[in-house]
């Protein structure tokens, strides 16, 4: 059946709207659900309160959030937010700094062992982290890194380096390196040229790598539960999985949902502000890497 041009346009536009609706529904429904759940009252949850939205009388208003952020009982969770932010930030900064050096060398310099670096990075990106927690736990308890911030920062750095190196070297390849040579002609050493000319140009790529690295560290669970045991270093995902409410036998679903929302807010903020960069970084790192 042939469609006239106008009708065809309309069908295409309708299909587009439907497609967009499906994508948005897919992405946002579970998020809306967890927000909705966080407004169910704890009593309603204990007695069972099926349904997407809080039942009438089963709503909690902001109570769950208030408890979570101010009640003494949940000081551990608040501490884990601090841990997660601190550990993820430090790991991100250090990892990106080190990756920047390596990526510069890979994108810019010709040297023996480049293949080795790239291959190592590739293998580590595929590494099953669970197979490392045993020996790492054993090493950490001997060195005294168990249940400390550095005890998590170090593995996070190692496992985010491949992603950071790929993303950065992909970005660095796009940089007009002639400018560096121009600077060198003007008498700057290679190191000065790198620092004064290239670093500012590379900043957007570095920033993208930083966001992706932060996502990884923020999301990690295996190291978080295996290499910590108290609030001294326990990050948010581990803290959520051990979450205890007033009823010691059941997970306090609605309170946990509130915690989950709190843990997701920083990510949503990052995504909102840096959407374009993240998309560019993901595709650059993975497809071109």
């Amino acid at each position: 059946m042939a469609l006239t041009g106008k009708n065809k346009d309309r069908v295409q536009r309708g299909g587009m709207v439907l497609g967009v609706a499906l994508v948005l529904g897919w992405c946002l429904l579970p998020v809306v659900w967890i927000i909705s759940l966080s407004f169910k009252s704890q009593a309603a949850v204990t007695n069972g309160s099926p349904g997407f939205f809080p039942s009438s009388g089963g709503g909690a208003g902001w109570d769950n959030y208030r408890d979570l952020l101010f009640d003494d009982q949940y000081a551990q969770f608040r501490r884990s937010i601090l841990n997660s932010i601190g550990i993820s930030l430090i790991a991100t900064i250090l990892s990106v700094a080190i990756a920047t050096l390596a990526a510069y060398a890979i994108a810019r310099l010709d040297f023996k062992g480049k293949k080795f670096v790239l291959t190592t990075a590739l293998v580590i990106a595929m590494f099953p982290v669970v197979s490392l927690v045993g020996p790492l736990f054993d090493m950490w308890r001997t060195i005294g890194l168990y249940d400390t911030w550095p005890g998590l920062i170090i593995p996070y750095m190692s496992f985010t380096l491949p992603l950071a190196i790929w993303t950065l070297s992909a970005f660095f390849r796009e940089i007009p390196w002639e400018m560096e040579q121009a600077a060198q002609v003007d008498g700057a050493t290679q190191w000065q040229a790198f620092r004064k000319v290239i670093v500012p140009l590379a900043a957007p790529g570095v920033f993208t790598a930083a966001i992706l690295t932060f996502f990884f560290a923020w999301n990690d669970f295996v190291f978080g539960i295996s290499l910590t045991s108290t609030e001294a270093a326990r990050p948010i995902p581990a803290s959520l999985s051990f979450f205890v409410g007033n009823d010691p036998f059941n997970r306090p679903a609605s309170l946990l949902a509130a915690g989950a929302v709190v843990a997701t807010v920083p990510i949503v903020i990052l995504v909102l502000f840096f959407q374009r960069k993240i998309v560019a970084g993901l595709t650059a790192g993975a497809v071109k890497g």
Partner: peptide, 10 residues
């Protein structure tokens, strides 16, 4: 990007 950013545990 939101599902990508959401913690797996969440």
């Amino acid at each position: 990007l939101i599902p990508y950013g959401v913690i797996t545990v969440v």
